[in-house]
């Protein structure tokens, strides 16, 4: 039998209780039993279940989530080719980026990486026609569609629906979630009775007929 005691027990010595406690602690068969581990695992499992309920209930902020339709907001007088513009839309906490590609395509996205919420940057020098780049973990998004082309992000960037007026000014009129088209996002936020949406009469001319350019 193994006795783990630094000194022979001295019944009358001071600190005997502390020594006894140390002896009990060291001599214990196991400080954490499998039973304890099972209880800890059950607690973690319950925490994960509660976390799932919280997520499905909407505890996480989604880009563009707000009561009612988002307001139309002018974000720039003009965006030149190859340039980008950081802005916030629709809320002050919703960081977004507008990009004008070399061929004139205008696109707007959430500037929050879907991986770990780092800032997404426009890099005109990367790829064949530039790309949206998250420097934290090398996440790369396609500038035309917002989909993931490389790196760890699990889904594409949410979109900001941009329109350009004849005078060159750029306006944000709505948002769309990851994997959602601009039209679906617009109709979801503004109701199906808008032109181009499924609920609009026999089918209107669509957004692109009334706006000079729209890219997601």
């Amino acid at each position: 039998m193994s006795v783990t005691d630094p000194q022979p027990p001295a019944p009358d010595a001071p600190g005997d209780a502390a020594q006894e406690a140390l002896r009990d602690r060291i001599a214990a068969d196991s400080l954490t039993t499998r039973r304890d581990y099972l209880r800890i695992v059950a607690t973690v499992s319950g925490g994960l279940a509660v976390g799932g309920v919280a997520v499905a209930s909407g505890i996480l902020h989604r880009h563009g989530d707000s009561e009612g339709a988002p307001e139309v907001k002018k974000i720039a007088d003009r965006i030149e080719r190859g340039e980008s513009l950081a802005f916030r839309y629709p809320g002050e906490e919703d960081r977004a980026i507008a990009v004008r590609m070399e061929d004139g395509t205008l696109a707007g996205y959430s500037a929050v990486c879907t991986h770990l919420a780092c800032a997404v940057l426009w890099r005109n020098d990367r790829g064949s026609e530039g790309e949206l780049y998250c420097p934290c973990h090398e996440g790369i998004f396609d500038a035309r569609t917002g989909e993931v082309t490389a790196g760890p992000p699990p889904r594409g960037l949410p979109k900001v629906i941009l329109v350009e007026q004849v005078d060159g000014s750029v306006w944000a009129i709505g948002t769309a979630r990851s994997g959602e088209s601009a039209l679906e996002g617009f109709c979801r936020q503004n109701g199906d009775d808008r032109p181009g949406c499924p609920g609009f009469g026999a089918g209107g001319p669509g957004l692109k007929a009334t706006e000079r350019s729209e890219r997601t």
């Binding site: 997520v55 889904r155 979630r177 990851s178 959602e180």
Partner: peptide
């Protein structure tokens, strides 16, 4: 998966 699906709408 839950987080991904919820964030995607």
């Amino acid at each position: 998966i839950v987080v991904d699906e919820w964030m995607a709408g």
